[in-house]
Computed example of a mutant assay.
Amino acid sequence: MAAIPKPSQDNEATVFVIDDDAGVRASLQTLLRSVGLRVNTFGSTDEFLAGRMPDAPSCIVLDVRLPGVSGLDFQAKLIQSSIQIPVIFITGHGDIPMTVRAMKAGAVEFLPKPFRDQDLLDAVQVGLDRDRVRRENDRATANLMSAYQTLTAREQQVMALVTSGLMNKQVAADIGVSEVTVKVHRGNVMHKMGAKSFADLVRMADTLGIRQTKP
């Protein structure tokens, strides 16, 4: 399993370039910096894993052929370790099977050398945008989970049941309380979760994966 790089407090979007060719690293660094992007370069995947990651949107420009672990194998290790950094592959020795494998695993782009500077810049922008959206979604989910954890055990139970489509009367019969009590719990759930409507609460339950299906 790949070791997760330690986070830093820096929040500037960053492009990581991993290539064993110093000339390529320098060229890509110059190109990316020319459009105002922050760039960190590494000669191997081990160097990257030993570094610190900014707590900000990022992506990796990764050479397919590297000493030791190949770029494709490194991509697989990142996925196995739940490191969800978008990857843009570059290679001077690519083929269709490589491309298919990389794209199926979620790569942003697979660029054969020599590639147009603009093609790389476009792919990097897509990667950073993708990571920005993922991070926003992760924060939203974390906030939802924090709100959910403020619910009592009974309120969590009621939320799961009402968002599964059961009427208050059915929920009351299912958990052995009065319908009035269910209404009180339901109101507390709406308030604590910050739900603006019942449809909003259902979306929250879907995001948290807590909706129940009656057998």
Rank of each mutant, 00 (worst) to 15 (best):
G94P: 01
P215E: 03
A147N: 14
T45R: 12
F89K: 10
S44M: 07
Q29V: 05
R154D: 14
D206V: 00
F198A: 02
G71Q: 11
I83M: 11
I4Q: 08
L161V: 02
K6Y: 10
D63R: 00
Q170Y: 10
L28G: 01
A26Q: 14
V87L: 07
K169N: 00
F74V: 05
Q75H: 15
F42L: 15
V182Q: 11
C59E: 15
N143C: 09
S8E: 10
R139E: 10
V15E: 08
K196V: 15
P86S: 04
P112V: 06
L208E: 03
A76V: 08
D122C: 07
R33N: 12
F110S: 05
A26G: 03
D119F: 10
Q118V: 04
P7Q: 09
M103W: 10
S146G: 05
V39W: 03
T163N: 00
L166I: 09
V133C: 00
V17Y: 02
V177W: 01
A142Q: 13
M193F: 05
G94A: 05
L151G: 13
G92N: 05
R65N: 09
L31N: 06
V124W: 02
L78V: 02
G127A: 03
M159N: 07
R203H: 10
A199H: 13
T150F: 09
A22F: 02
E47W: 14
V100S: 06
F74S: 02
A2Q: 07
M53S: 05
H93W: 05
A153R: 15
D122H: 14
D73L: 08
P215M: 04
L111D: 09
T181C: 03
F115P: 01
R25F: 00
D73G: 06
F74W: 10
C59Y: 12
Q149I: 09
C59I: 04
V17P: 02
V133R: 14
A172P: 03
Q29G: 04
C59H: 12
L37C: 12
Q84R: 15
H93P: 00
D55L: 13
P112C: 04
I83P: 03
V162R: 02
V15T: 04
D131K: 03
L72Q: 06
D122R: 15
D174R: 15
T141H: 10
